[in-house]
């Protein structure tokens, strides 16, 4: 017996583009199926019952009909689970949400569920909605996405000689996979000079909860350094820049 023709899942709308006369193609990051693209017929008509539920950043309960082989699935029902309205009302919140959806879009694969990243995305959207400091939430989100995707950089040993890194005498290379001691940090790799505070903060963001991370005091210089280190790491693994980054920097 084949798969049922329709299925139900919960997901966050991470992208939405117009399709045909009045339809939409939405990209969802779902709890059970990972990244998933689907069609919403007639969504752009004023009478559409679905479009308000399928706005980007909404967490929705969905029923989808499986498309024919080679075709996209079709959204037949949608109901908001959580909408984060306060996040949309602030430019910083909205752009922070867009940034996170772009990161998830980059790291998520279709048909490959990752419940940890799904829960992380919802948790971080909820935090931004609740007014948590944006830079803390975004840096924590980046670290945890790298961790749950299997790309967490090494932050205790030199990735080359495997000796414990000495605070104050360490470098960082996304290409090498983490920290390097000064004698190993050569060989044509892009190497960042990393402060002790940045190293400690990244280690802390890795093991702490979001609430704990948000309570940390981040000086502007340290915040900029963490942004550079993590965006360099994301760029290396995605092989492209996160496009929302430049707009975020403009608003900072």
């Amino acid at each position: 017996m084949g798969q049922p023709r329709s299925f139900r899942t919960e997901g966050v709308v991470i992208r939405s583009i117009p399709m045909m006369e009045a339809g939409l193609m939405v990209t969802l990051f779902t709890r059970e199926w990972g990244k998933l693209r689907a069609v919403v017929h007639g969504a752009r008509k004023p009478s559409s019952k679905l479009v308000g539920h399928l706005e980007v950043l909404n967490c929705v309960d969905l029923t989808l009909h499986r498309g024919r082989p080679g075709n996209l699935d079709i959204v037949s029902q949608a109901q908001i689970v959580e909408a984060f309205p306060a996040l949309r009302m602030r430019l910083e919140g909205a752009t922070g949400g867009m940034y996170m959806t772009e990161v998830v879009d980059g790291f998520g694969a279709e048909g490959s569920p990752n419940q940890e990243i799904y829960q992380l995305l919802v948790q971080c959207l909820r935090a931004l909605h609740g007014g948590a400091p944006r830079e803390h939430v975004l840096r924590y989100f980046e670290m945890q996405v790298l961790d749950h995707s299997g790309f967490m950089p090494e932050l205790h040993l030199c990735v080359d000689c495997r000796e414990a890194v000495q605070p104050g005498q360490h470098l960082y290379s996304p290409e090498a996979g983490g920290t390097l001691c000064p004698s190993c940090g050569i060989k044509g790799q892009q190497v960042y000079h990393m402060s002790v505070n940045a190293l400690k903060t990244l280690r802390y963001f890795r093991r702490s909860s979001l609430e704990e991370a948000c309570s940390l005091r981040l000086e502007p210089q340290l915040s900029r350094e963490l942004t550079n280190l993590l965006s360099g790491t994301l760029k290396f693994w995605l092989d492209r820049e996160i496009r929302s980054k430049s707009f975020l920097e403009r608003l900072a």
Partner: peptide, 16 residues
């Protein structure tokens, strides 16, 4: 709400 719309099917953000 759009003219001809239906409260029952409206999303929370639109209704609020």
């Amino acid at each position: 709400l759009p003219v001809g719309g239906d409260l029952e099917y409206a999303d929370e953000v639109t209704l609020s």
